[in-house]
Design a protein around this nucleic acid. Structure first.
Length: 547
DNA sequence: GAGTTTGAAACT
DNA sequence: CAGTTTCAAACTC
């Protein structure tokens, strides 16, 4: 599994935000950058110990406008290109790695903490196929292509000469800045084989846990969105679906899609994942680009999931790898969980198979930083209820298009408040429901009244919005308008009551008042005179306007 | 915004 | 499976 990560991604080590590093990874494993392929690749069988290092504490991060699926990580400092580079956040690791501008491939970051000197030594040839081609950036000395890899034993970056001939081992500190290019040796097949939860020995192991989450677009993904879409209206709003859950059964070869509705995958199915896919702790991350290309499977349409996602997110697909700005139609409802750590089905995000994002929750573990707990929680939920992540609203039989799969159990709400899951989903209660005093049936007068009220309210809102839009439009047009004639052909006031006219009118009124004051005219008479003068002014203005 | 009500989920 | 508790959302004031 980790080989896949190493083989398919640029890697640099990162310290998780909470500081909980995976201690299984040697700290001197400094590095680093591995191939981000442009072609599919085959996940190799486990090889000898000189395969790419075990990478831990991997965190997806953002590269030049690529949507970041997790919170920004904090990297302490790392030795790079012979100097210490302090990075407070990884907003732009591409700059550090020398990735070409506009790169949209995912980059994984690993923390580097060791500065121990590196000895040059010959490298075993067997490592080469696992190596990753690196060429120095134009500014770097020696523009020869280089291959590099790391080993689990030495924990050092190993650089190889350009023609793949192993040559020496080099510390990252001695490497020039480099850019990452595809590893041409990697063949275009990645397979998922369902296996028992515990790592099988000597086999290709891709899906280790029982539950595997396919996240469809971390590479240049938009924000996480709805995963389970129980009704078409939600799809119509452009809600984004990103992940599906796949389940493997111990001792079985069945790989089953749990959510959303992918149906059962045939036993023994192998799933071809697209290039750029990584798998970590049972989570499979598929880059966004793949969706447009349409991943295929050997015998199984994992691409179904991809296509589903694409269909759903079609209104909000990022362009050129740049994430879209937040869209109101795509924003899911943030949760407010306080006690569940967002790892129970109380949490809507978790229940929908989503990571929490922009939520108001406390002590949240529903994120990539707590993937182990999260996976455990998912398994626990599935243990209690194998259908826990199935959509609650399914397709009904006959004339009922949709219905609640489990039915509600309301007692006090009459199933006419949003407490009721049926009512909330805008569907009628069915005979599956065990509700008391249900009023959510076709002929219910209470329901009809409520519907009418709701319709009326909706119409009012629409009318208000339309009026508001129209007014705003008129206001925008107002300053730029030339004198406009009304229907009858006369000029409209704003075309002739100019600032000059107003000033002149005021001056006339002041003169009139001042003259009256000098004559010791009473206050009341002054007001009359001013009003008369104002009338005269208006007549003059009207007269002028009509000429 | 605080407090109450509600029903699903979790637990026993 | 039934009863109870926990939880977060919906709702009310």
């Amino acid at each position: 599994m980790l080989q896949q990560e190493a083989a398919s991604h640029s890697l640099v080590k990162v310290e998780p935000p909470n500081g909980a590093m995976d201690t299984s990874t040697p700290i001197s494993q400094k590095f680093v950058a591995m191939t981000t392929p442009t072609t599919n690749m085959t996940v190799p069988e486990p090889m000898d110990q000189d395969v790419p290092v075990t990478i831990s504490a991997l965190q997806a991060c953002q590269v030049q406008g690529v949507q970041q699926p997790v919170v920004p990580q904090t990297v302490t400092s790392q030795m790079f290109a012979g100097r210490a580079v302090s990075i407070s956040s990884l907003q732009n690791p591409a700059a550090v790695l020398g990735l070409p501008p506009g790169n949209t491939q995912p980059v994984m970051i690993q923390q580097t903490s060791s500065t121990q000197p590196v000895q040059r030594r010959p490298m075993a040839q067997s490592i080469v196929p696992q190596g990753n081609k690196v060429i120095p950036s134009p500014s770097a000395p020696g523009n020869k292509p280089m291959y590099f890899t790391t080993t689990s034993s030495s924990n050092k970056l190993i650089a190889i000469s350009g023609n793949s001939v192993p040559r020496f081992v080099q510390s990252i500190g001695n490497l020039p800045r480099f850019q990452i290019v595809p590893q041409p040796r990697i063949s275009p097949q990645t397979t998922l084989r369902p296996i028992a939860p515990r790592m099988a020995t000597g086999t290709s192991t891709v899906v280790r846990p029982q539950v595997t989450q396919i996240q469809l677009k971390p590479a240049n993904t938009p924000r996480p969105g709805k995963q389970v879409l129980p009704n078409p209206s939600q799809q119509a709003t452009g809600v984004v679906q990103q992940r599906v859950l796949l389940q493997t059964h111990p001792g079985s070869t069945q790989l089953r899609a749990i959510a959303p509705n992918l149906g059962n995958l045939p036993p023994g199915a192998t799933i071809q994942l697209p290039p750029g896919t990584i798998i970590r702790d049972g989570v499979v991350y598929v880059p966004q680009q793949v969706q447009t290309a349409g991943a295929t499977t050997s015998g199984v349409q994992l691409s179904t999931a991809v296509q589903i996602s694409q269909t759903v997110s079609s209104t909000a697909e990022p362009v050129n790898g740049v994430p879209d700005p937040p869209s109101p139609t795509r924003q899911r409802k943030p949760c407010n969980c306080t006690k569940s750590q967002c790892l129970k089905l109380y949490c809507d995000c978790f229940a929908n198979g989503e990571f929490c994002s922009n939520c108001n929750c406390n002590n949240c573990s529903n994120n990539i930083d707590h993937e182990k707990e999260r996976s455990k929680a998912i398994r626990a939920c599935l243990g209690r209820n194998p259908h826990a992540f199935h959509p609650k609203i399914g397709k009904g039989t006959g004339e009922t298009e949709r219905r609640h799969n489990k039915g509600c159990h309301c007692k006090r709400s009459g199933c006419l408040k949003n407490y009721c899951e049926c009512y909330e989903a805008k569907i009628l209660c069915t005979n599956i429901c065990k509700c008391t005093g249900c009023k959510n049936f076709e002929e219910s007068p209470e329901r009809k009244t409520l519907m009418h009220l709701a319709d009326a309210a909706e119409v009012r809102v629409q009318q208000q919005n339309a009026a508001k839009t129209k007014l705003e439009s008129q206001m925008e047009d107002l300053p730029s308008r030339a004198p406009i004639l009304a229907h009858a052909g006369e000029k409209l006031p704003f075309s002739f009551v100019t600032l000059d006219v107003v000033e002149a009118t005021c001056r006339c009124l002041l003169v009139q008042a001042s003259a009256a004051e000098k004559k010791n005219t009473s206050r009341t008479d002054i007001q009359k005179l001013v009003l008369e003068e104002f009338g005269n002014c208006l007549l003059k203005i009207i007269h002028a306007a009509n000429n």
